[in-house]
Design a protein around this nucleic acid. Structure first.
Lengths: 159, 159
DNA sequence: CAAGATTGAGGAGTCAATCTTC
DNA sequence: GAAGATTGACTCCTCAATCTTG
């Protein structure tokens, strides 16, 4: 079966994503004893202005359900990596920020994960190729989400 | 924080994958009432020589656990999409192949999903760009797995 | 009553142990 | 005793309902 150049490109995204996530997960767990998900949440908070985010922002940026983020943050708080401050200007909102330990942990995770990315991803492309990947995939993502970090409430236009 | 060109490329893979999977999942469910996972398993069997696979081959190609594939195939069999023939040349093995209904269902899923890919992915790149994506990502995947469809038993070299 | 967040029930996936056949 | 496959116990995630505040 011939799938066509572009269809093949999508399959290569699928395969590369799957293979790399497995490796990154295993390496992070091996070196730091931490699942990739933890890193994923921490880096989102770390990148946020003031290193603080509302639960809903966090959920939206992770493109995952609200309830998921509640449970995950609960766990991170129990591990002492983040703090939930029940306040903000809005009495309903809950802000999450990194604790001192969380910042320190994030540093270790970041170093380990950056090394993994270099070793299993970056090595295999030129700067130009990397730019093509970024350009094309960002185009796709923007069209899909109506913006990079901000997925539409309803991901499917006609659903 | 500046992450570097290649690191940015990896993040764009992450975002595009996440956004597209969501959309493809929603569209397939909307048009055919079927989750993407079902399509994923069916296409693997459909692409296999003789449109038949061993459970373990299926698990390896999906890069997922053996127990997962057992449960999933159970469900597909209950839905009448595949048949499990307890035989083969090896008495321990179990072969899975598409039923007539499975082939018919796969046809519908394939048409719907191909349309989704065109609409949300292929449109946004030139043939040349698609080739760059495929080349780079296949390089990465081959290095990660030691081959395209055949992940190593132990995904992390030093684990 | 709309938005932010949480909770409970249920489905889906993983790990380790088991059973069967080579 | 090793490989193929399955099962059981457990964790993780999602959906829908709920609680709370604007």
């Amino acid at each position: 079966m011939a799938l066509g150049t572009k269809r093949a490109a999508w399959r290569s995204v699928l395969f590369a994503h799957s293979a790399l996530i497995r490796i990154f997960e295993a390496e992070l767990k091996h070196e730091c004893g931490t699942p990739l998900q933890t890193y994923d949440v921490l880096i989102r908070i770390w990148l946020a202005p003031g290193q603080s985010m509302r639960m809903s922002e966090l959920a939206d940026s992770a493109i995952l359900s609200r309830s998921w983020i509640t449970r995950r943050v609960e766990r991170l708080e129990a591990d002492g990596l983040v703090e939930r401050t029940p306040a903000g200007d809005d009495g309903r909102g809950v802000s999450v920020r990194l604790s001192d330990q969380g910042r320190e942990t994030f540093g270790r995770l970041e170093r380990s994960h950056a090394k993994s990315i270099d070793q299993h991803f970056s090595r295999f492309m030129t700067e130009d190729e990397a730019r093509v990947l970024t350009d094309v995939l960002n185009r796709v993502t923007v069209a899909a989400n109506g913006g990079l970090g901000a997925p539409a409430k309803s991901p499917v236009s006609r659903a």
